[in-house]
Computed example of a mutant assay.
Amino acid sequence: MEPLEKTNEENLSKTKYDGNGRSPFKPTGAFIGASWTALLTGIVGYCIGLWNAGMELNEKGYYFTILLFGLFAVISVQKSVRDKAEGLAVTEMYYGLSWFATIAAIVLLIVGLWNATLTLSEKGFYGMSFALSVFSAIAVQKNTRDAKMFEDKNI
């Protein structure tokens, strides 16, 4: 006896993705807005914390550089992972370097906070605003790519 409905995998392959494994759906305005709001909240909160911190300028520069490095690294990982999933060419060197940069940024933040003479609440604040920033950067990049793909497909 055959099942009446197709499996989820068959349904996804026919309805959610086109022939190249790409999603033709445009992200909703609410998801785009929430992603950008989270990104700006994380970055602005992190920077306000640095501005008001009672640390040396070189320490502030270190933490700011880690934020920028982390944001670039996670966007690079998201792009290379998605490119590979869609069958686009991604060199193993770039793929590996983007993962290395992401892990390095996280480790550098952890080591910096571990050795910092900050209160535990300040360390938690920087860790959480960093995490919010990098996660939302991934979502913003995904939304941007999905919207562009949708636009290209429907022109």
Rank of each mutant, 00 (worst) to 15 (best):
A139P: 01
V90S: 11
V107T: 13
G96S: 13
V134G: 01
I103E: 02
M55G: 03
C47N: 06
V107Y: 10
W114I: 06
I66L: 03
N58K: 06
I32R: 10
N11F: 12
I43R: 00
W114C: 00
S23F: 06
K6E: 15
A147I: 12
A147V: 12
C47I: 07
Y17F: 15
F150Q: 12
Q78K: 08
S129M: 14
K153D: 14
E86I: 11
Y63K: 08
G87A: 13
E5C: 10
Q78P: 02
Y46W: 05
I75T: 12
Q141S: 09
G61V: 08
V107W: 10
I32W: 05
V44S: 13
S121Y: 11
K60F: 04
V44Y: 09
D18R: 07
T144Y: 08
F100N: 07
D18K: 06
K79A: 08
F100R: 05
M93R: 14
K123G: 13
A137K: 02
V134L: 04
K79T: 13
G19W: 01
S136A: 15
L132M: 07
A147D: 15
T7F: 07
G96Q: 11
L71I: 10
T102M: 15
N8H: 12
K16N: 09
N143C: 15
A147W: 15
V111G: 04
T7D: 13
